[in-house]
Structure formats: C-alpha cells, structure tokens
Amino acid sequence: MKPLRFSYREYPILDKEGKITSLAYRPVIDVRLIFKEKSRLFPAIIDSGADESLFPGWMAKFLGHHLEKGKKVRLFRGIGGEIKAYLHQTYIEIGGIGFRCDTYYSDKFNDWEYGLLGEKTFFSHFKIELDYKNKLIVLTPK
C-alpha cells in the first residue's frame, strides 16, 4: 500500500497575556474514531513515548461510550502525575486504513486539543517516519 503523507502542525505557546513565546511543531494527524453507528474525525499526536492510545473523555462521550463503564480502569503516569483512564474498544481509521484499537479515555485530558496515538496500539500498524527537519510525517501501512 502507498505511504500516507502528512505535514507537521504548528502550535503557538502563549504566555498569560496571550503573547506568543515560541512555536511548537507537532506530528498531529486527523484520525476517524468509530463506535457503533457514530464516527468523527479528531486530531491525534503520534507519540512514541506513550504506551497506549489515550483520548479526552469528551470524545468518548461524544461517540456514545459511557466513559466510566469502560472495560478496564487504568492509571497512567506521566510527567504531570497520574491520571485515571477507561478502556473502550474503538475502531480507528486513517487514510482509508482501519483497525480495532484498545483506546483509553480520560476526563483529565478534556482540555487537550488532540488524543495520543501510542506504541502498543498504533505503532504496530504502520512504519512511522517523523522528519522534523522537513516537517513531514510518513506512515507506511505494514
């Protein structure tokens, strides 16, 4: 299958007054999350530092999941401390390629603009090239 190509996205880092202090370039792509009859495109960052895929709780509720009735509750530890997240099986589609994915959702993530695509679930489906210098993302389906 042909590789999928995407550009990096540019995000401003703002101070308390709303002034730009720097720019961040991140490997964010639009992915379709599907649950039963409902589907929606959401942005998600390709995150090799994340073990699992994790999305804001509001996205789970939007898709029709009952957030706290997830199959499994798990604590994730990051630099900002621990968060509780709930597992819901979700079908993920990127550029016409779809797969069922163990996806965690957490309300602690509700102010985030995108989800995290982690190693265990996302990286097993693509060979991933992140070319920061040229701000290019290449996903080659495995």
């Binding site: 401003p12 720097s22 961040a24 942005p43 960052i45 990051g78 102010d111 985030w112």
Partner: peptide, 17 residues
C-alpha cells in the same frame, strides 16, 4: 457535513509527554 472536531485549550503551553 464531516468536519474534524477539536477543542482549543484554555492554556497553550509546551508539552513534555
């Protein structure tokens, strides 16, 4: 009919994930 849905965060900070 089929846009991308997201949220603009209240704080636009740098992340270390």
């Amino acid at each position: 009919e089929d846009p991308v849905l997201t949220k603009v965060p209240t704080k636009a900070t740098a992340y270390i994930l």
